[in-house]
């Protein structure tokens, strides 16, 4: 079941970034640049139903700005903070939907909260939490899933 979970996580983030930003998500991390926490922007989305949980997307600001600029067709220096944050929230929203559609049984409905910016991936989450790393354009970013129902 964990294999399926990881495949669905990767499939959902790969589809999200390929379809929205025409960027390929890789799992080879050896040469990817790891950015410090203070250069990373984090968004969280609560899963209310069928099992309570949380999804986190932590992306280096430099990568988020590159993605946002390419989609909005503006120079990175002309980007607003709000546009970049909105992009991060739309990415996590789209990822979460694709992931839950792939992971849950076909007719299982689910209910999500609204994406919000948070200071970091909360290791003190009340749920069991797992984190995965991927790279785009050689920049490393993270996804985390918290929720006791996902890892049984």
């Amino acid at each position: 079941m964990l294999d399926k979970l990881e495949q669905d996580i990767y499939g959902a983030i790969a589809t999200t970034l390929e379809n929205m930003a025409f960027m390929e998500v890789g799992r080879e991390l050896d040469d990817a640049v790891r950015h410090p926490a203070e250069e990373t922007v984090v968004s969280r989305l609560l899963i209310h139903d069928p099992v309570p949980g949380e999804v986190y997307l932590a992306m280096p600001r430099v990568l988020l700005n590159r993605i946002t600029a390419s989609i909005f067709i503006v120079a990175e220096e002309d980007l607003t903070e709000q546009a970049a944050l909105d992009m991060l929230c739309e990415l996590i929203n789209t990822f979460a939907g694709l992931f839950l559609n792939a992971y849950l049984p076909e007719d299982q409905t689910y209910k999500l909260g609204l994406p919000e910016r948070v200071p970091g991936i909360q290791k003190d989450s009340p749920f069991e939490i797992r984190q995965w790393e991927f790279q785009v354009d050689n920049e490393l970013f993270s996804l985390a899933l918290a929720g006791d129902g996902f890892f049984e």
Binding site: N93, T94, A96, G97, N101, D107, Q108, T109, L112
Partner: peptide
């Protein structure tokens, strides 16, 4: 929507939506 699946699609169509698409849309 990012939260669409066959069950949700049926519910929305029963309520009168003529189509339901999943994000990211092309």
């Amino acid at each position: 929507t990012s939260a669409g699946n066959p069950a949700k699609e049926r519910e929305l169509k029963d309520l009168g939506a003529f189509g339901v698409l999943n994000k990211p849309v092309s």
